[in-house]
Design a protein around this nucleic acid. Structure first.
Length: 491
RNA sequence: CGGGGCGUAGCGUAGCCCGGUCAUCGCGCCUGGUUUGGGACCAGGAGGUCGCAAGUUCGAAUCUUGCCGCCCCGACCA
């Protein structure tokens, strides 16, 4: 990313929009705040989704599906929850349209008003816990470990492609447990799953932590989160896992009999990641030439581009290209052989760079004669010539190398952008000039947190897990503090 | 919902101050040909109620008023 682009916020927004749109991931739609995810973008999401889905299953979870609509009364059962979501709900009030008797178009039939309005789910805790009530009677029914892949709607005031759209795709896990400890362990386990996925597949280092009280999920006792850093120095919450205590069990009256036949409310967790992860990927890894996708989740890992000379030996080039593509495919590599003759090689090079394909293999007559190919790495934009034999091994090795290099580059950037501040002046100066995470003492009160947010726009992103205890004074209030927490301007 | 900017062909735009061959240019698209190692070239062609509505005027993309939509910033948030 160039200096000029980082220097101004609106240019950075433009840079990001261009990456998403020109990279072929998504477009704005006719509906305000919603986006169309294009085939390439959806293929990327599918790679991420399928990987996560397997990780959930490997940790004992099952998929299910719950309704899109939530009766209004459900939402009000948990007080903090309703407060958190009421302001951004889409509401269904009618179920029929009719022709306008005054001519012209079509109108909502006033006679088709619903007795109880339906809320388009902003999240599914309420409808799910209403269901769990009928599923859980005994400790033998526990733990209940369910995930759903779904769309949700939150009527946000301002939207951004992938990062915040009115409708978005996500997964939400909702589990029920016999003990508090078990539920806490579950929410921590899922945080680990998320962190592993984002770091190992998305090549994006994250900080694991817990949210402060005021940043907590509406209805949670504890919110665990992973926080990533974007190239403009702003933080992005990449995933959350909540320990819900017995709040939802109480609100929806979900009790179980333990081994001693004693009735108790169950303990709950919920956890989710969304298509926002795609946005994180784009912002964290791209450069001015376009997207850079990490090999492990790139929908196309290798693109092969033949370079023709008229019709001369075209068949030979095609045959050899397909052969190489098949060999790579057999090794489990996602490969595309692009011999579309409508575009010239230079155009294709640029196009696949914009799409972030990790490896490009170019092959012309020169290569056929020399038994070589040209391999170009997207991440460091390096071109090298390799012999065709052992190409599969070479590509496999390179994909791993790229994955590692991308993670290390992001890690280096992230670590360089965690800075300690010991005074308010230092804190403001860092926010203004450097950005990133700022590690500073905080007195632990919501009042100081709020005042800091008000004055600096920075929020507490998290209190890192296993945070070292260290005596100090709050950068805002001057009162004693036991530990540093991470502040940042966030998306 | 506040502040800023913008709506002209599929996309990006010039023209708007100062009303009158003015609907500009680039990309893309279609046809034919030559091409293909970093976004090809030549020739020909299609595509527009200048966001919508009203007003001023002999005459409006251009001036006035109202509306609609979009983007960016802020508040809100994953």
């Amino acid at each position: 990313m160039s200096k000029e682009i980082t220097s101004r916020q609106d240019d950075y927004a433009q840079w990001y929009n261009d990456l998403v749109i020109k990279g072929g991931l998504a477009d704005y739609s006719a509906v305000r705040g919603c986006m169309v995810i294009k085939p390439y973008g959806f293929a990327l999401w599918e790679e991420m989704r399928d990987t996560l889905d397997q990780m959930f299953k490997d940790t004992g979870h099952e998929n299910a599906y719950f309704p899109l609509f939530i009766p209004k009364s459900f939402l009000s059962r948990e007080a903090a929850h309703v407060e958190g979501f009421a302001k951004e709900c889409a509401v269904v009030t009618h179920y029929r349209l009719k022709n306008d008797p005054d001519g012209g178009g079509i109108i909502v039939d006033p006679e088709a008003k619903l007795e109880e309005e339906l809320i388009v789910r902003p999240t599914s805790e309420t409808i799910i816990w209403n269901t769990y009530k009928t599923w859980i009677q005994s400790y033998r029914d526990l733990p209940l470990l369910i995930n759903q892949w779904a769309n949700v709607v939150r009527w946000e005031m301002r939207t951004r492609l992938f990062l915040r759209t009115t409708e978005f795709l996500w997964q939400e896990g909702h589990t029920a447990h016999a003990t508090s400890d078990e539920a806490v362990a579950e929410s921590r386990l899922m945080l680990k799953v998320y962190a592993d996925f984002v770091e190992n597949y998305m090549a994006l280092p994250v900080i694991r932590g817990v949210k402060s009280e005021s940043e907590r999920f509406a209805g949670a006792i504890e919110t665990y989160c992973i926080e990533a850093l974007m190239q403009d120095g702003k933080a992005l919450q990449a995933g959350t896992s909540h320990f819900l205590g017995q709040n939802f069990a109480k609100a929806f009256d979900v009790k179980f009999s333990d081994k001693q036949n004693k009735l108790d409310y169950v303990w709950a967790t919920s956890w989710g990641v969304s298509t926002r992860l795609v946005g994180a990927l784009v912002m964290a890894h791209s450069d001015d030439e376009g997207l850079i996708l990490p090999p492990r989740i790139a929908p196309v890992q290798v693109v092969i581009i033949p370079i023709y000379k008229g019709d001369e030996r075209k068949d030979e080039l095609d045959a050899r290209g397909k052969e190489i593509a098949n060999a790579l495919k057999k090794a489990g590599i996602r490969v595309k052989f692009d011999n579309n003759d409508n575009n010239r090689p230079g155009w294709k090079f640029a196009e696949y760079e914009k799409k972030g394909v990790p490896i490009r293999i170019a092959m012309g007559l020169r290569d056929i004669d020399n038994q070589t190919v040209e391999i170009a790495r997207r991440d460091i934009r390096e071109k090298l010539t390799f012999p065709q034999d052992k190409l599969v091994e070479q590509v496999e090795k390179l994909l791993i190398e790229i994955q590692q290099a991308m993670f290390l580059k992001a890690l280096l950037y992230r670590d360089e952008h965690i800075t300690r501040a010991d005074s308010w002046q230092e804190f403001e100066k860092l926010l203004d000039e450097k950005g990133g995470f700022i590690s500073a003492h905080w007195d632990g009160t919501p009042e100081s947190e709020e005042a800091i947010k008000e004055k600096s726009k920075a929020t507490i992103r998290c209190i890192p897990l296993n945070n070292p205890q260290e005596a100090g004074v709050c950068i805002y209030s001057g009162r004693p503090s036991r530990e540093r927490v991470l502040f940042a301007i966030a998306y």
